[in-house]
């Protein structure tokens, strides 16, 4: 199976999911569509680098490319260098256990939309940390920020997410 065929199959099966990955990074729908297309073009151009490791590997590889494409876009947009004052970071509005319980009680689509509502910098770090599995050191190097900034943004994302879940429960 050549690249075009495999990508067409992936498009048919996982197109919606891959677009949702783009939207998680760039919540603007039109921009996400652009990122989706750019991601597929990038996948086609780099098809030789793909290593088939069994079912799901193409989906994982494509989602990685989508995330990369979005990160490149966000880096150009440069929303990351709005460093916050660590001293002004609010304390957590909810404990982790409460947050876990709250997340469990929210519908998947609603939770997804909550993530889209997060500020760009917080959403980006949350996506990379939680969904892509990067460490703060890797996030810091990728985005050109400090590790502590990455950690702070994740913390803020958590706080914001907890607040939204509280509002959702109401």
């Amino acid at each position: 199976m050549d690249g075009i065929e495999a990508l067409e199959k992936a498009y048919m099966q996982d197109g919606a999911y891959l677009l949702s990955v783009c939207r998680r990074y760039v919540c603007d729908p039109a921009t996400a569509q652009d990122m989706f297309q750019d991601g597929f073009v990038s996948a086609y151009l780099n098809w030789s680098k793909f290593r088939n490791r069994g079912p799901g590997s193409l989906k994982a590889w494509l989602s990685r490319i989508m995330a990369n494409t979005c990160l490149m876009y966000l880096r150009k947009k440069d929303p990351m260098h709005q460093a916050g004052d660590l001293a002004s970071v609010p304390m957590a509005a909810a404990s982790d256990s409460e947050l876990a319980d709250g997340i469990a009680g929210v519908r998947d689509e609603d939770l997804y939309n909550m993530i889209l509502e997060l500020p760009d910098m917080e959403r980006t770090v949350l996506n990379m940390f939680v969904f892509e599995g990067f460490s703060h050191r890797e996030i810091a190097r990728t985005l050109g920020i400090r590790e502590s900034t990455s950690a702070m943004r994740l913390y803020r994302a958590k706080v914001h997410l907890a607040e939204m879940i509280k509002d959702y429960e109401k």
Partner: peptide, 30 residues
């Protein structure tokens, strides 16, 4: 827990279908 729950619930959400068809996409890729 909270990370995994978030990843499981929001990470597998398939949103809207892409607006672009694969034929158009193929043209761009080629």
């Amino acid at each position: 827990d909270w990370q995994e729950i978030l990843r499981e619930k929001a990470g597998n959400v398939a949103g809207v279908q892409p607006q672009v068809s694969f034929a158009e996409l193929k043209e761009k890729m080629v």
